[in-house]
């Protein structure tokens, strides 16, 4: 299938926060109640449409468990987007965000767009991290923020798509060199930069990347 761009994403965060479930919900619209620990990297791909352009998201779902982390870290390289996930019902997963962020920034391009995700928003009664705390962390570190539920699918589409919109916006602003593979962006087959969006192209559909649709 043809596409204008391919964006590499990584999904990172503590074990059990729901990274694989977010991916599965996004690619297959299914929820997996059992926790099958990821031991390396699992891949997913999906086309999305941003501003009339077909964009292929190539998603690297990495293992969160400490024993596997040293290995999966090496695959952060060349990601254009990262979903940094914590579990709103487990404060320790929120407390570890700084270390994940350091890791991500150290092993990938400085332009990488990072979306902070507070997952399991369906478990409101067990909430351990306030939404405002997530927002504050995101603001402080220059991240986009959303709360999601991989179980009910709430905001899952938005999380992946808003990240893509932000990357696309950066491309249009000339902040991403699409010819430098280290940036995690590829121009699709049979596309050349003159036929794909360049600076100044229409930005109609790109807005509100930080807000969510309010279902959570």
């Amino acid at each position: 299938m043809t596409y204008s761009y391919l964006f590499k994403y990584i999904i990172i965060g503590d074990t059990g926060v729901g990274k694989s479930c977010l991916l599965l919900q996004f690619t297959d619209k299914r929820f997996q109640p059992v926790h099958d620990l990821t031991i390396g990297v699992e891949f997913g791909a999906r086309m999305v449409n941003i501003d009339g352009k077909q964009i292929k998201l190539q998603i690297w779902d990495t293992a969160g468990q400490e024993s596997f982390r040293s290995i999966t870290r090496s695959y952060y390289r060349g990601a254009a987007g990262a979903l940094l996930v914590y579990d709103i019902t487990r404060r320790e997963t929120f407390n570890h965000l700084t270390s994940w962020l350091e890791d991500a920034r150290q092993h990938s391009s400085s332009n990488m767009v990072i979306m902070l995700i507070g997952n399991k928003s369906d478990l409101e009664s067990r909430r351990d991290v306030k939404r405002e705390e997530g927002e504050a962390f995101a603001r402080e570190h220059g991240l986009i923020f959303m709360e999601t539920s991989a179980k009910t699918a709430c905001n899952v589409e938005e999380a992946f798509i808003n990240t893509a919109k932000e990357i696309y916006r950066k491309i249009q602003q000339g902040l991403f060199d699409v010819h430098n593979e280290a940036n995690g962006i590829k121009i699709g087959p049979q596309q050349s930069i003159s036929t794909s969006a360049g600076p100044g192209a229409c930005q109609r559909n790109i807005r509100d990347t930080g807000s969510d649709s309010g279902c959570c």
């Binding site: 299938m1 031991i39 390396g40 990297v41 699992e42 891949f43 290995i71």
Partner: peptide, 25 residues
């Protein structure tokens, strides 16, 4: 490393599914 791939449901084109350190397999 162990790599697994399969044809996609949509069009049967190859898709990489996973990459796993052999030490854990």
């Amino acid at each position: 490393l162990l790599l697994l791939a399969g044809p996609t449901k949509e069009d049967g084109c190859p898709q990489l599914l996973g990459l796993f350190p052999l030490q854990f397999v």
